[in-house]
Simulated assay, not measured.
Amino acid sequence: MDTIDLTPDLILGAAELERTDRGLRPHRLPAHARRRDADPQLTMMEAQPSGIRLSVVTSATSFALDLHATRVAYRGLPRPRGVVDVVVDGELIGSQALRAGDAVELDMQTGGSTLVPGAADTVEVALTGSGDKTVEIWLPHNEQVELVALRADAPLRPATTEGPLWLHHGSSISQGSNATTPTRIWPVIAARRAGVRLQNLGFGGSALVDPFVARVIRDTPADLISVKLGINVVNLDAMRRRSFVSAVHGFLDTIRDGHPETPLLLVSPIFCGIHEETPGPGAVDPAGWATGEMRFVATGDPAEVAAGRLTLRVIRDALAEVVSARSDDPQLRYLDGLRLYGEADAAAVPLPDALHPSAEGHALIGERFAGIALSSEGLLRAGSG
């Protein structure tokens, strides 16, 4: 097989590609934001390539991608490895779990970390039949990767992009926490069902109404924009209602500076029982250490809601009021997150760690979002031209 240049036009969903000693590292935030604005949590999450994929047209019968992963591991709490999905002409034909790569082992009890180095993985793709095929290699949503080398037995060219470009910002739920593979995170499920092109700015622990994220959205081309806010603000106990409402208005104002007429959807949190009535901060439940399971609890005092502490119920009311106050913006819509995953859904398809949806939950949310927001008559597309 011949070596193929890994050029930016083969890779969709990335803000930038950083040249490293090994190869190319995809980023979901531009360099200026990473250098000045991103804290260690966001720096880790934005380099996990949720929604990023190689997309090519080829008559090759086989090709291979070498990649070097870096993952976070919690000592004493096993976590599933990242997975690469291969989609051919729109159909998922295979998934490969990563086995090698570097691990940053975190000790949640002491706060210490240890780097355990490893080798690269190779994803091999075998194709049947003759003629051109559109092949997508979806990178892991939960591990950083460096693209080392691409080889094929026939030329590859960039796939033609089709459908509107949907830019979505949210939390770890939007990044894909607890989903099993990169095409099974809810934004990818929704995008593939609706025939739109996803650029995913879902960042674990980091949907905090940051002004610099609004500037990134402002400066990024998009046909459709959605912003899902609230859960991180609550579980970090980051704001009070007064500051939250003002920050959301400023966030939307900044987006509108670059996208004055782009359809824009403000989405409130899905149901999460621990934070519906109880403020943050959230914490890891220490009882999980005995069973090797990570679960979350809310540690705030419900009595302080009257003084401005935030719960998910307060957040939903506040976001609905924000959109109502901006009634002069006909392309701004509101979606109550309970329509995507509500209390009855939590009883039928529980959040396994009390915070993030299961694989079944991601499928439910993705299918509903596709219908409610991304269908031809959905909130983001009806009347958008």
Score class of each variant (00 low, 15 high):
Met1Asn: 05
Leu24Arg: 08
Pro26Leu: 06
Pro26Asn: 05
His27Glu: 11
Arg36Gln: 15
Ile52Trp: 05
Thr58Trp: 09
Ala69Pro: 02
Ala73Lys: 06
Gly76Arg: 02
Gly82Pro: 00
Asp89Tyr: 02
Ser95His: 03
Arg99Pro: 00
Leu106Asn: 12
Asp107Asn: 14
Met108Cys: 05
Gln109Asn: 12
Glu124Leu: 04
Glu124Lys: 09
Glu136Lys: 00
Leu139Thr: 01
Leu139Phe: 04
Leu139Pro: 03
His141Asp: 03
Gln144Asn: 10
Val145Trp: 07
Glu146His: 01
Ala149Ile: 00
Arg151Gly: 01
Ala154Pro: 07
Ala154Cys: 05
Pro155Ile: 04
Leu156Tyr: 07
Arg157Tyr: 08
Trp166Tyr: 07
His168Asn: 07
Ser171Phe: 03
Ala179Cys: 01
Ile185Ala: 09
Trp186Val: 01
Ala191Ile: 02
Arg192His: 05
Leu198Ile: 01
Gln199Arg: 12
Asp210Gly: 00
Pro211Asp: 09
Val216Ser: 02
Arg218Gly: 02
Leu224Ala: 06
Ile225Ser: 08
Ser226Glu: 11
Arg240Thr: 11
Ser246Phe: 03
Ser246Glu: 15
Ala247Gln: 13
Val248His: 10
His249Lys: 08
Asp253Trp: 09
Asp257Ile: 07
Asp257His: 13
Pro263Cys: 11
Leu264Phe: 13
Ser268Ile: 06
Ser268Asp: 07
Ile270Cys: 13
Phe271Leu: 08
Gly273Tyr: 04
Gly280Arg: 02
Gly282Pro: 04
Ala290Phe: 13
Phe296Leu: 13
Ala307Tyr: 12
Ala307Phe: 12
Gly308Val: 12
Leu312Phe: 13
Leu312Val: 09
Gln331Phe: 09
Tyr334Trp: 10
Ala348Glu: 15
Val349Leu: 14
Arg368Cys: 09
Ile372Phe: 06
Ala373Cys: 08
Leu374Val: 07
Glu377Asn: 11
Leu380Ser: 08
